[in-house]
Design a binder for these strands. Sequence first.
RNA 1: GCCGGUGUGAUGGAAUGGCAGACGUGACGGACUCAAAAUCCGUUGGUAGCGAUACCGUGUGGGUUCAAGUCCCACCACCGGCACCA
Length: 799
Amino acid sequence: MKHDFNTIESKWQAKWDEAKLFEAKDFSDKPKYYTLVEFPYPSGHGMHVGHIKAYSGLEVVSRKRRMQGYNVLFPIGFDAFGLPTENSAIKFGVHPRVLTDENIEKFTSQLKRVGFSFDWSRVVDTTEEDYYRWTQWIFCKMFDAGLAFRDKTLVNYCPHCKVVLSNEDSQGGKCDICHNDVVQKSKDVWYLRITQYADKLLQGLDKVDYLPMVRQQQENWIGKSTGAFVNFKIKEVDETLRIYTTRPDTLFGVTFMVIAPEHPLLDTYADRVANMDAVLAYRNECAKKTEFERTQLVKDKTGLKIEGLTAVHPITGKEIPVFISDYVMMGYGTGAIMAVPAHDGRDYDFAKKFGIDIIPVIEGGDIETEAYTGDGNMINSDFLNGLTDKKSAIARMLEELAKLGVGEAGVQFKMKDWAFNRQRYWGEPIPIVHCPTCGMVHIPYEELPLRLPKVENFEPGEGGESPLAKIESFVNCKCPKCGGDAKRETDTMPQWAGSSWYFLRYIDPNNTMSLADEAKLKYWLPVDWYNGGMEHVTRHMIYSRFWHKFLYDLGVVPCDEPYAKRTAQGLILGANGVKMSKSLGNVVDSNDVVDSYGADVLRTYVLFMGDYEQAAPWSDSSVKGCKRFIERFAALTDMLTETVSPELEASLHRTIKKVTDDIESMKFNTAIAAMMALINEIYAAGGIDKASLMTLAKLLCPFAPHICEEVWAELGGNGFCSAAEWPVCDESKTKVSSVEIAVQISGKLKGKIVIPAEATEDEAFAAVMADETLGALLASKQIIKKIYVKGRLFNVVAK
RNA sequence: GCCGGUGUGAUGGAAUGGCAGACGUGACGGACUCAAAAUCCGUUGGUAGCGAUACCGUGUGGGUUCAAGUCCCACCACCGGCACCA
């Protein structure tokens, strides 16, 4: 058979559609399996081969699971709110709704051409009212629970995109969208109190099966540290300065205190500070720096002593000077630290610069040259002296602090609350009304969704306010509580909102009564296997786990972790080895590959090109290898034999085992290589019997389903190959009668012999000695040791 | 700075401590062809040799072992995450 992909691919896609072959059944006697891939953002550029690789992994798993008798939910949708669409809308003067619909249509046709076995009856689009109604519903629930709140604060603002960015979206001081510098700006901002779930998000990682790298990145992001809070009295006024430290064991080494420039102590006691002018000047200087600049100046410490406020050591009663410096952040801990220069690098740098005492309290290291952060015997530390390790010193100190009532154990997280608003049009409107009498009130649940109004001009205002602020009919409204005149919130939600719960909507996409039916959620959840990009591990994944845990606490979802397993695929790089991008012109469009080689070849190649989890460059010439493979497979229908040799049958069963196992560990490249090797063997044997070829078609079907259906039909198979039963390896048939083993003499490879597979050590050794060259080599030597690894090698240690 | 990952032919990449380089690309040779493409068959880590063969070879340097790409110790390079986080 010829590989006529143009005809057969559309033919089988139509037949699958007609048979509703890939539609998941709610409730079924079969075991359920929920495979999830990250839904795409439908940009105007269409899909490149990287998208195809991202979906092909779980596509193969899903198809295999169905053949193994599972009821599989493998859905797809579109994460369609977002800035690029809005920017194109501004550029071309077309409404984002229109652009979004066009792009979704383009993406859908591209995905369908590849023959993915998505359940197309469950498509969700985050920009549809039926969908964002429930995104708003969840927001209102969070508002009711006190988890959504508004606060005036310094924010990361991108002057180019005219949006406020979360810390996550402005890493390295650059806007995540346009990569320009962000600046600090004071603004009223919506926050979601994700920090309240920090511990749960961390502990939940114990219950799930994430790639170790994914888990580690989430742990880093949450950034839990354990330590202690300690209260230092201020000598001059009736006030305590509360600090957080991870090293309470070094409390006797404190020689100064440092507070952040924004610390409220300065405002409260401004009149007691002798050098307040200088302090204020320093504070202003710091305010001008961006967060990025502040964290960049690692080496050179700045700051000054606050004259007139002195701390008192809670145990020794010694007086300790207080400094202000921007190496202490207001946003972490209490915004104040106890400085132990002998055992902390930053404190050491500061003490050296300002000539402050450095008192070692742990033996080891040389404080003349640098801070010592290692373990050792406690010294200069009163009741801690003689203790030899950090752990017991900390425990003893915490005991003492509790006794004196001046401190206690505590934990801190690096994770900050989630800045949850954007001043743009193409997003979910935040369903809140600002009422002069009632304050902030959310729109009643039964009145959701709060629809995005039609506007003509999507440009944000100069002050960075949302385009919605210009629509009087939208802004002016009545308070849902008191009925008085009120104003609507005009900010919209960030793009992460819609993607935080989409996997729930797939379970029941048309429900008008709730975000999804309870029984269906109970049936399908959790997602059994979620695959996506590494770039979404710390943002999307943490956000959606947070929402899910919140919904669990509300009783809406039946489990507290949404994703049982998470893996990540590597990027496809351009042919030049760098990331694909439009500006570099190295993007490979999936349609172009399907046009020239067909979907089966594209699908096979993206999985064959390398380790699924590693990045690999696209190669036009390498695609040909997969093309030849598919063609050689198709041509097997013209090479049918009546019988099959035991050797070939053994290879077939070994291939069944290899492919079955490799799919589970995402080693798609070696699974395909095994099938290629089998086909090479069939060619060498001159052909194969029909039954074996049908088995091979089933094995290849998850990878290259169209040609497998065609071959299956040609051979007279019942129904669809895609619906056939997954082959099982018969171990007894993989046994071969004789094997070639390597022979080493003293660990060096000296030859090979063919012996019965089940030969004993003595039989194998006899065969070695019987071999002409090997026997001659060993004849004059004294044999010290014999090592026989069945089926592998025989090593004779001799001298 | 801390944490993680990676390092193998010309090239993408394979190898439960057991024959390094599976499978694919490329290159070379052959068959078919007037010819080319396609296809099929074969060769292809390096050095020396006509050859059998010998020696070398998985980022670097040590070590464990009958046997190391794989395990241990020290280091180098690149990639990713976190980062004056107290």
